[in-house]
C-alpha cells in the first residue's frame, strides 16, 4: 500500500490519483443503484427499463415558458458583453417578465406589459447604479 501510494502521489501524476479514486467510487455506487433497482423491479414484477408512461417533463408542461426562458437566458448572456449590463438587462428583464406573464388566450395585456417595463427599468438601472457606481463592482 505504501509503495502504491508513493508511486501514485509522485508530483508527476498526483493530480490523477483522486479523479481515479472518486471515479471508481462513483462507478461502484452506480452499479449498486442499478442492482437495487433490479431487485426492486424483480420483487414488484415491473420491467427494469420502463419507458412506457415515462415523461421527462410534467404533463402539459408550459413549453413556451420553459424553452422560452432557456433561449432568453442564452441570448441575454450573449448580449451582455455587447450591450453592457444596464442596457442588456433592461431588455431581457423586460422580456422575461413578459414571457412569464403570458396567459393562454390573452398573451399580452397592456397593464401587465407596462408593469414589466417598470420592473425592468428599475431593477436594471437600480442594480447598475448600486453595484457599479456605489459598490464599484466590475459589471459586463
Amino acid at each position: 500500500m505504501q509503495q502504491f501510494l508513493k508511486e501514485w502521489l509522485k508530483i508527476r501524476n498526483m493530480h490523477l490519483f483522486f479523479p481515479y479514486l472518486i471515479g471508481t467510487i462513483c462507478a461502484i455506487l452506480f452499479v449498486i443503484i442499478l442492482i437495487q433497482r433490479a431487485l426492486r423491479c424483480k420483487k414488484e414484477g415491473t420491467p427494469f427499463i420502463n419507458f412506457k408512461g415515462y415523461h421527462f417533463f410534467r404533463e402539459n408542461y408550459d413549453k413556451v415558458k420553459l424553452w422560452g426562458s432557456v433561449i432568453l437566458f442564452v441570448l441575454y448572456i450573449i448580449c451582455l458583453p455587447i450591450l453592457h449590463f444596464a442596457w442588456a438587462s433592461v431588455i431581457f428583464i423586460f422580456l422575461f417578465n413578459v414571457l412569464f406573464e403570458m396567459k393562454p388566450g390573452k398573451l399580452f395585456e397592456a397593464k401587465s406589459v407596462l408593469i414589466s417595463a417598470v420592473i425592468a427599468l428599475v431593477s436594471s438601472w437600480g442594480g447598475w447604479y448600486l453595484f457599479f457606481k456605489v459598490f464599484n463592482i466590475t459589471l459586463p
Binding site: 428599475v122 438601472w125 447598475w128 447604479y129
Partner: peptide, 14 residues
C-alpha cells in the same frame, strides 16, 4: 419612490 430612483439613475447614466 421608484420614480425618484429611476430618474436619478437615468441622470447618472446620461
Amino acid at each position: 419612490m421608484f420614480n425618484k430612483k429611476f430618474i436619478a439613475s437615468v441622470l447618472v447614466l446620461v
